[in-house]
Simulated assay, not measured.
Amino acid sequence: MPFDELSEEPLVSPDTKNATKFHPSEAPPGQEEYWKRLAGYNSGLYNGFWEEAEETRRIENLAIFDAISGQLELTPFQKRVGRMHFEELNIREIGYGTALTAFAVCMIVAAEDGRRYSPRAKPENTDSEFVRIADSLDFRPKLIERAVHAVREAINE
């Protein structure tokens, strides 16, 4: 099947090994807790006694990346490439927050397709969506530059 970059992304994509989805909100009255627990078991995040913090953190970090890449209007291909790079990164080693790291990955991926952003460039010479998101998340230009440098080095290792 040929890749269609213009087709929509699926609304629900599995971040875990099991693609079956349980929706406790759709359970019959009085059975919500049962289905919530079943959803936890199925996702691999919960076994009834403990929650797997590492997997929960991974899913939350990917949700942050998805939100930022969606706001930046990356193509589905750019989102997949960026998500792949983002998932391979050790955010703690990089030393910047999850949102800034995700923003830096999006900058790097978008630049490969000609969508350039520089925090020091004049607004008319850089991508307006990146400017808008950087302003809304209150990222300082120098911090963005350092984060992009660190992420680029980590990706190229």
Rank of each mutant, 00 (worst) to 15 (best):
M1C: 11
P2S: 08
F3V: 13
F3N: 12
F3E: 11
E5H: 03
E5T: 10
L6F: 11
S7L: 13
E8L: 13
E8H: 11
S13K: 13
P14W: 07
D15K: 14
K17Y: 08
N18V: 05
A19K: 15
A19N: 12
K21Q: 13
F22W: 00
H23P: 01
P24Q: 03
S25Y: 06
E26V: 06
E26R: 14
A27E: 04
G30D: 08
E33G: 04
Y34W: 13
Y34V: 06
R37W: 05
R37T: 07
L38W: 07
L38S: 09
A39V: 10
G40A: 04
L45E: 07
Y46L: 03
N47H: 01
N47A: 03
G48H: 02
F49G: 03
A53I: 08
I59C: 08
E60H: 12
L62M: 15
A63G: 11
A63W: 09
F65R: 02
D66N: 14
A67M: 10
K79I: 07
V81N: 00
V81F: 02
G82P: 00
G82S: 00
M84H: 13
N90K: 12
N90L: 06
I91R: 05
I91G: 01
G95I: 10
Y96F: 15
A99Q: 09
A104H: 00
A104G: 02
C106V: 03
I108M: 06
V109S: 04
V109R: 06
A110K: 05
A110M: 05
A111C: 08
E112F: 00
G114Q: 03
G114E: 05
G114W: 02
R115A: 04
R116A: 12
K122L: 14
P123A: 13
E124H: 14
N125T: 07
A134I: 05
A134Y: 05
A134Q: 04
A134M: 09
S136L: 14
D138Q: 14
F139V: 08
R140Q: 14
E145D: 15
E145W: 09
R146I: 05
V148W: 00
H149N: 12
A150S: 14
V151C: 09
R152K: 15
E153C: 06
E157D: 12
